[in-house]
């Protein structure tokens, strides 16, 4: 590699670092101050969005992920793993929430719930 390539690559790392730092501090500020309305779901969604943006920035700037030839296989396998990860996380949360909901019912409520399900047909 040529010496003249050093600076542009360094700048890429620096840009990624500054962006990541900014996003982390922004997430923290959103929590510590009362800028956002008191809606837990909304705040968590915004925080997760910021985390995902930071993830993508770091993947591109630090791990040099892209769709061009040399990093293509890494990007594809990562995309597959992220799909599996989402199945595990969302699936687990869904199943356990549902189980929790059913276990929390009184026996009358459970009866009523079963009757309703029966009417729908299995």
């Amino acid at each position: 590699m040529k010496e003249s390539d050093f600076k542009p690559l360094l700048r890429k790392y620096l840009a990624g670092f500054m962006a990541a730092l900014l996003l982390s501090v922004l997430s923290y500020t959103l929590i510590s101050s009362d800028i956002l309305p008191h809606a837990e779901g909304l705040v968590m969604a915004v925080l997760l969005l910021l985390a995902v943006v930071q993830l993508v920035i770091q993947l591109v700037c630090f791990l040099h992920l892209g769709i061009k030839n040399r990093s293509r296989n890494r990007t594809l396998t990562l995309a597959f793993t992220i799909a599996m990860m989402l199945v595990i996380v969302i699936g687990s949360l869904w199943i356990m929430k549902n189980l929790d909901y059913r276990m929390g019912m009184s026996s009358e409520a459970m009866n009523e719930y079963m009757m309703k399900q029966n009417k729908k047909g299995f």
């Binding site: 982390s24 997760l48 910021l50 985390a51 993830l55 993947l59 630090f62």
Partner: peptide, 9 residues
């Protein structure tokens, strides 16, 4: 560090 972003969040 990537994992930590999500632990932090």
């Amino acid at each position: 560090d990537l994992v930590w972003i999500f632990i932090f969040t």
